[in-house]
Amino acid sequence: MNLRRWTEPVLSHLLLIAVALLFLIPLWWLLITSIKPLDQILTIPPIWWPHSPQWQNYLDTLTAPAFPFWQLMGNTLFYCVVSTIGTVVSSAVVAYAFARMRFVGRDLLFAITLATLLLPGVVTLIPTYVLFQRMGLVGTYAPLIVPYFFASAFNIFLLRQFMLTIPVELSDAAHVDGASDFRVLWQIILPLVKPALIVVAIFNFIYAWNDFLGPLLYLDDSSRYPFSIGLYAFRSRFALQWNLITAAALTITAPLIAAFFALQRYFIEGVTLTGVKG
């Protein structure tokens, strides 16, 4: 019995450490490959720390005309920031109606909203493309960004759940004082659901930062590429220069990892919220 009391935690930690290493080693490999000279990358046995770290790989990558860093950064930030503002604002307004307003057809509309959470994106892909093409918008950011301004099922759902936890008395009192719905939403509800707004913003920002299929479909001019497609294009030019490819790859990954450590609480809370309530 006594033996079991300490062997069990030890075994469980050993297993956890082994799996954690399997998850972290690829990230270490990304970092370490990016500062290697070309002849130390694909070797047996593997080199865990380069004999002479080549920090100028980063300089080479960031100044390479095939990886126009600042242009890619500008495009990516534009896509992320504008789409995030769009979805946070529109989803909050719609969520408020579902959480606080009574109207004919509300429950049916909410059921439809939940059903679309399970809708496979593939069934809307092609006609949406055709629609934007007919409008002459393929090649611009409009097809990627405009839909965000019309709310999303998931964000509506998440924000509504949060708004429902706010005591009705608060908004009722404001209504009695003659406040409009917009003022109640803006001055009372939104400040109280700030953590949820931050969660929605973070997840949307990261989704846009990582989005590959959207830019692949809609952007053709390389001067408009965001990081995801920019890295893909860079790789097809420098297929075997793994040190430069990983340097570029790490450059676009590091901001996300930094954001995770800075906003860890919101990440964990956000992921947890997304899955517990089915």
Binding site: V19, A20, F23, L24, P26, L27, W29, L30, T33, I41, I206, W209, N210, F212, F227, S228, I229, L231, Y232, R235, W242, I245, T246, A249, L250, I252, T253, L256, I257, F260, F267, V271
Partner: peptide, 19 residues
């Protein structure tokens, strides 16, 4: 450790694993 990989952009993930 278990969560970080899910933050990595899919392009980076794929290229990293190809390496």
């Amino acid at each position: 450790a278990f969560y970080l990989p899910s933050l990595v952009p899919a392009v980076v993930t794929t290229l990293l694993w190809m390496l």
